[in-house]
Structure formats: C-alpha cells, structure tokens
C-alpha cells in the first residue's frame, strides 16, 4: 500500500479523517467516564471519607479529641470542621485531597509517567492528522467551486449537522484549546479551595463551573460537539463503505444517539455543579 498515494487521495484523506475521528470519539467516551468521577466527589460516601480525613487532621493539630464521625454526621461535622479550618489557614495546605475520586484518577494517570506521555502524544498525532486532513479537504472543497451559486437550495440530502461540519470543527478546535488552558494548565488561575479546603483539580473544576457564563460556554460547546459527532460517526461508516439498506437506519440512529449521549453526558457535569451551588 503506497501511503503517499493513499493519504494524498481524496478517499484516503477522508478515510484517515474518519479513522482519526473515530479514535477521538473513543477518547471522548473514556474522558467522559473519567469526568463522571466528579459526581463521586459529591457523594455521601466521599463526604464521609473527607470528613474522616479532616477530623483526623484536626485531631493531629488540636487536643480536642473527637470521635470519627459516622456517615450521617459527616455533613454536619464537615461544616464545623470547615469553620475550624478557616480559622487555621495554615492547615489548608496540608489537607490531603488525593482521595477525592477525580483527583485520584488524575494522580493515577500521572503515575503512568512515560506511558501517559506516549498516550498523550498519540492523541496529539491523531488530533493533528484529523485537523490536517480536515484543512486540506476543506481547502480543496472551497477551490472546487470558485464561483458560488446565486441561489442555493437543499434538495434534501444534507442535514444541519452535515452542513456545519466545517464550522463545528473549527469551533471545537477553539474549545479544546480553551479547555486545556482551563483545566489542564489552569491558565485562568481558578482557585482549588472550596470552603477553605484545597480540593485540588476537583476544586478547580467545581469553582470553574460555579460561574454561569463559564458553564454556559461549556454547555454550548458540548451541543456543538454533539452535532459534530452525530454526523461524524455515520459519515465515517459511509467513508469506510459501511452502507447497507438493512443497517443504514441503525447506523444513522446510533450515530445520532452517540452524539446526543456524549453531549448530554458532558453537559451534565457543569450543569450539575452549577445547580449544586
């Protein structure tokens, strides 16, 4: 297989875009599953763990020995503990937030060391390939019709999703940069402290989404992501030649379903955080 011929041909480019796109969808799914751990940070079980940890921490620094709280007491105690912590700011830094599920997940990923970097590199390569093929294809497509029609009307083939792939793609690229700056590199310096406790990455995320504008932007971006993915999967199937009258409806519905599920899944996090406020 001549790679040059393949990757410089219209179909080869499309298939490269399709396979990289599908891999990116795979990433989106695993990323979402990881992110769902945020919910666990709100769970009673975790609150109990957190209260226990803080109680032990306090116990270490004060003489007022108290019993480790029961699950039911945790919430109430937590407020008390937080009040105590607030009056002892030096304690904040020594808070151990690694047992917050999202943070544990992030730590575990970091512990992978070089493996993580290989994965990240792979993701970058996939992403860049996807983008590169997209740009090339779009430029060729634009050049293929130098003089536009005065009137254009759909004859019934295209959909909103298919027509907006170029734009949703560009917006998503912008969103990804923003997202990396936001949570991976915390360039906006969002505080990780919640109620006087340094809750690490979890705190950054929660604090970030407490801003309705921030949340609104993310929800919008996820809507666009859903639109993009809903066309992308069925399109990728067609590009690989998967088109059969018996299965086409299934493919179409699955593609739309995955798009919607991903969008709703990702939207649920900021909305949840905002409502929880």
């Amino acid at each position: 297989m001549s790679l040059t011929r393949f990757t410089t041909s219209s179909i080869g480019r499309k298939q490269t875009m399709a396979i990289t796109g599908l891999l990116l969808v795979g990433f989106l799914v695993s990323h979402l599953l990881g992110n769902f751990l945020i919910f666990a940070g709100y769970g009673d079980k975790y609150k109990h763990e957190q209260a226990k940890g803080l109680q032990q921490l306090l116990n270490k620094h004060s003489n007022a020995k108290q019993n480790v709280p029961t699950v039911n007491e945790s919430k109430k105690n937590l407020a008390k503990i937080n009040a105590l912590l607030k009056s002892n700011p030096n304690l904040i830094e020594s808070t151990d937030n690694s047992n917050i599920p999202l943070n544990t997940y992030a730590l575990k990923l970091k512990e992978l060391g070089p493996l993580l970097w290989i994965a990240r590199l792979g993701l970058i390569v996939i992403f860049v390939l996807h983008m590169f093929m997209f740009m090339q294809t779009t430029l060729i497509n634009k050049a293929a019709r130098p003089i536009p029609y005065a009137t254009v009307k759909d004859a019934g083939g295209s959909t909103t999703a298919s027509k907006t792939m170029v734009y949703t793609g560009i917006i998503l690229f912008g969103y990804i940069l923003l997202h990396l700056a936001d949570f991976t590199f915390n360039l906006f310096e969002t505080t990780s402290v919640i109620d006087g406790v340094d809750e690490g990455l979890f705190g950054i995320v929660v604090n970030g989404f407490k801003n309705p504008i921030h949340t609104g932007l993310y929800v919008l971006a996820m809507f666009i992501l859903g639109l993009h993915v809903s066309h992308a999967i069925q399109s990728a199937c067609q590009t690989f030649g998967i088109n059969h009258p018996k299965y086409n409806l299934l493919i179409k519905n699955s593609s739309n379903g995955i798009g919607i599920a991903l969008a709703l899944g990702y939207m649920s996090i900021p909305i949840f955080v905002l409502i929880k406020l």
Binding site: S10, I11, R13, K14, Q15, T137, I140, N141, A143, A144, R145, D154, A155, G156, G157, S158, T159, S162, K163, M165, H231, Q234, S235, Q238, T239, F240, G241, I242, N243, H244, P245
Partner: peptide, 27 residues
Amino acid sequence: FGNCSNHYECEAVCPKAIKVENIARMN
C-alpha cells in the same frame, strides 16, 4: 473535483436515482 463529505445532495438531485451506496462501495 472536491471531496465527498457525505451530504448526499448528489443522491437527492440525481435524475436517475443513483444511490450513495455506490460511493460507499467505491470507498
């Protein structure tokens, strides 16, 4: 010519109802 981005407008206007299934087969 441009690249196919699976809009299926071609199929919608084709006077002989040629299906995009053929594009899949060619892919």
